[in-house]
Amino acid sequence: MFLAPIIMAAALTGTPADWAGVTRPAGQEAQPIGEYSNGCISGAVSADLKNPYYQVIRQQNRRFYGHPLLVEYINDLAGRAHDSGLPILLIGDMAMPRGGRFIRGHASHQSGLDVDIWFRMVKSPLSKSGLQTPWALTIVKDNFLETNSHYTKDTYTLIKLAATDDRVSRIFVHPAIKNQVCHDTPENDRAWVRKLRPWWGHTAHMHVRLECPAGALYCIKQPTVAEGDGCGAELESWLEDIRHPKKKKKEKPQKPVKKKVPEQCVELLNIK
């Protein structure tokens, strides 16, 4: 009797395509594993897709998963925003069902502790098509030195609410936005402003990153944000780079260093 050969599926190794092909979380215990930019998430949960105070955009990309602490943070922030009179929040990328690297976009958002929160807010819920193809609201002028008229009191309130939470490690915003917040905040109330970290891009959203949760044995922390509000020389160096960009020296292009995917993540990826 002839027996057909058994074809074994090749093991997944942790390429961006491997992570993107996963459609559901795995693992029983919620654990962020590895670095924010080289890791994964066990036991991820979905954002609340029916929350009245926020909507998740581009749900077709399946980037609305995270550690339960992240989902709790988003729910709490949206509730506080509503209580402060803000419109409905728009939530962008979180992580994929098991984390890992995106095919396109962020290098981070891999361990279920990052979320993009748009500066655009809406008075009434977006339609299905509006969620699938939303337009972003840039709040920085074309000169990249100042905020524009889309930066409002509501914008400032949202940023402050997001940052004044002990679960937050840091929030990435464009240098012009950090500069505006520094001007808008009295010096005796700037303890939270230190969490705002200048970074290129981030003109239409803020990137919120949470601390590693208590008991997260495999979560690799980032260095603690330096003391001080960051509104002085550090911020000025970013603005000076915008005013007078330095000419880049022509150097022989180097191959990017490829990070090794943590073994726990490869094992998680291959759970059926």
Rank of each mutant, 00 (worst) to 15 (best):
Ser108Trp: 11
Ser111Trp: 13
Ser169Thr: 14
Pro125Gln: 01
Thr152Lys: 09
Ser127Lys: 02
Gly130Val: 01
Pro134Gly: 04
Gln110Phe: 12
Arg170Tyr: 09
Ser129Ile: 10
Thr152Cys: 08
Val168Leu: 04
Ser127Tyr: 03
Ser124Pro: 08
Lys123Ala: 11
His109Ile: 05
Glu146Lys: 11
Ile139Arg: 03
Val140Pro: 10
Thr164Leu: 09
Phe172Leu: 10
Thr133Met: 13
Leu145Ile: 09
Leu126Gly: 03
Arg120His: 09
Phe172Asp: 06
Lys141Gly: 10
Tyr156His: 15
Val122Ala: 01
Ala162His: 04
Ser129Val: 09
Phe144Glu: 11
His150Tyr: 13
Leu158Asn: 02
Phe119Gln: 00
Val115Ala: 08
Val168Thr: 07
Lys123Gln: 03
Asp114Val: 11
Thr155Ile: 06
Leu113Pro: 00
Leu158Ser: 09
Phe144Ala: 15
Ser169His: 05
Asp166Ala: 12
Ser124Gln: 14
Lys141Tyr: 12
Asp166Leu: 08
Gly112Ile: 05
Pro134His: 07
Ala162Gln: 05
Val140Trp: 08
Leu126Trp: 02
Lys153Glu: 13
Phe144Arg: 15
Phe172His: 07
Leu161Met: 13
Arg170His: 11
Thr147His: 06
Asp114Thr: 09
Lys128Gly: 06
Gln132Phe: 10
Ile159Asp: 03
Asp154Ser: 14
Leu158Glu: 08
Leu158Asp: 00
Lys123Arg: 12
Thr164Tyr: 10
Gln132Ser: 15
Ser111Cys: 14
Ser127Gly: 01
Asp166Val: 14
Val140His: 03
Lys153Pro: 15
Asp165Asn: 08
Gly130Ala: 02
Lys128Val: 08
Asn143Ala: 06
Ala162Gly: 15
Asp166Gln: 15
Arg167Tyr: 02
Leu137Trp: 12
Thr164Ala: 13
Val115Glu: 01
His109Gln: 03
Val122Thr: 03
Phe144His: 08
Asn148Leu: 06
